[in-house]
Design a protein around this nucleic acid. Structure first.
Lengths: 201, 201
DNA sequence: GTAGATTATGTCAGTCCATGACAGATGACA
DNA sequence: TGTCATCTGTCATGGACTGACATAATCTAC
């Protein structure tokens, strides 16, 4: 990797970190692009060369996490039922974060706090999840061998499950991956309980 | 109702109609507040006295529809299971729209087209639905006698069901309540199929 | 290492969304 | 009719974003 590429990556991460710290400190709305840019010592115009909007920088960690999830999903064995594969991919993504760089984990947790505290950002995350849902649907349809209403429902149920799991996290659990994992497992277990056997086949 | 009050209501509806027509004609992003205000012959500043943001005017019909739904939900008999009550309330809300003023119906369908065509507005609608979900959860928890994870899941499943039903609408079905109704019924039937008996009790 | 091509960055000007302040217009009501 | 409350327009401002252009940094080939 050349110097230029490394420098860009560094600036990008610096912008995300500066933005998240400012958002947590003084709130998303009252933080200006000028402040974020000044903290990293770049011009405001440069900020917009890295991120298309103020919202995008707040959602960058979530976006990255979703990419990790999708990559995990593609690695799941084809024998697993759709929902099992989705749940396992989620566990895999969380495990990667847990065993990875502490800085990445911190960044992810900070971003989650910002998302949770800011309605407009929360809506943006929903948009991300729905965009992702299309790619998840492809995988579900592939495993079930049918791109129909039922595949859509399986996919939407997974999205709901993740969402409800996250929503139940208390403030302290938001800064702790273990707590988040437990909430997710509880919700996965409930789905197993309420669905008819092979509902996702 | 006094003249002043009637005039305000008239201006509000005129702003919504003008905005929706412009959004459909030239797209949401490329429509300016100035254009909307000019079409109704008020100052741009006045627009913001009726709507807090450009997004709000696009979501006004959706907001009204959700209020109707909640009111229907409260009217459902207490003997119905939570999910049944939710589905029936939805049917009731659609029926009200079908049998009501043709203009209201047209406005609702136009707004749905704009929502469907504009990602940022779509995200906004998600935010609306999630805000509503809290009030729906109260009703579900009341009927089940427990404000727990399961009540949350029932509520989230309902939201997903509505969303999937709407998503499946083709472009022509978006301008036709009957088509939308059929999609919703298909999705309700699927839920009945995939869930264990009394899953929502 | 130097020249020339690429690409990143800063500066500047401009548009649009959104909000506060104030003054004038209009409906409400005794 | 006169007074009061409320609505509206005008003006000024700040902050998000974008296009255009010049400068500076990196890369590539020699």
């Amino acid at each position: 990797m050349g110097l230029r590429e490394r420098k860009k990556l560094k600036t990008r991460v610096a912008l995300i970190d500066a933005a998240l710290d400012l958002f947590l400190e003084q709130g998303y709305e009252s933080t200006t692009i000028d402040q974020i840019a000044a903290a990293v010592d770049v011009s405001p115009r440069t900020f917009f060369r890295y991120f298309g909007s103020k919202e995008e920088v707040a959602l960058a960690p979530a976006t990255d996490a979703q990419d990790v999830f999708l990559s995990e999903l593609h690695d799941r064995p084809g024998t697993e039922s759709p929902f099992t594969a989705l749940a396992q991919a989620m566990r895999g993504a969380v495990a990667l974060l847990r065993d990875g760089e502490p800085e990445d984990k911190q960044r992810f947790l900070k971003a989650r706090q910002v998302v949770e505290a800011t309605p407009t950002i929360f809506a943006g995350q929903m948009r991300l999840m729905l965009a992702n849902e299309r790619r998840i649907l492809e995988e579900v349809a592939r495993r079930r061998g049918a791109d129909d209403l039922r595949s859509q429902f399986v996919t939407a149920t997974f999205t709901s499950t993740i969402r409800v799991g996250f929503e139940n996290c208390t403030v302290e659990e938001l800064s702790d991956l273990e707590g988040m994992t437990k909430r997710l497992e509880d919700t996965f277990a409930l789905v197993d309980d309420l669905m008819t056997p092979d509902w996702d086949r």
